[in-house]
Simulated scan of single mutants.
Amino acid sequence: MALANRYLTLQRDVHSGEVLARGGDPEAHSILQRTGFVPVVRVHEHYHRLPTGLDEAEEERLATRAVARLSAVRYHVACDEAFETELREAQYPPRRLRRPPGRTHPPGDQHRGSRRRAD
């Protein structure tokens, strides 16, 4: 993974007033979306923004939470002072599917090469 993808900016746009997040890799995009950011994909750019209609306190809460989540998994986030936090939210690994005892492969999956076709 490229080190450049571990850097993001999360700031309030001076022209529109929207809270925007730029940069990152697919993991960062996933974290942003789970925090409430909406992906914006245009021809020459890809970024995330908070939904419209939120009050300023809610925007700051969501942006601060995004900074905490991204920092917890070692992303460098350049953000506005209002969004800075020392808080690091706990990260949990994804749940794995539990297989019944004695089963070593997913149901319906045949071992490759275990059956030979009679010619």
Rank of each mutant, 00 (worst) to 15 (best):
L62F: 07
D119V: 12
E18I: 02
G17S: 03
R69I: 02
A63C: 10
R34Q: 01
T85W: 02
R98E: 07
E59C: 07
V77R: 08
H15I: 06
H48I: 03
E58L: 10
V19F: 08
E56P: 12
A78P: 12
P26F: 02
H46K: 02
F83I: 03
G24P: 12
R99A: 12
R49K: 08
A118Q: 13
T52L: 11
P39L: 04
C79I: 00
T9W: 09
H46C: 02
R65C: 14
Q33R: 15
R69L: 06
H76Q: 14
H76N: 10
Q110R: 11
A21L: 07
R117W: 05
E58W: 09
H76G: 11
G17L: 06
S30G: 14
Q110C: 06
R88T: 07
Q11W: 08
T64W: 06
R88V: 07
S71F: 01
Q110I: 06
Y7T: 08
D25M: 04
Q91K: 08
V73W: 03
R42A: 13
L32M: 15
R6F: 08
E60M: 08
T52S: 10
P106D: 08
E89R: 14
S16K: 09
D25W: 00
R42L: 12
D80L: 00
E56V: 12
P101I: 11
E59T: 09
P93W: 13
A82V: 00
I31P: 00
R69F: 04
E45K: 15
D80I: 00
A118L: 14
R42T: 10
A68C: 06
S71R: 04
Y47Q: 05
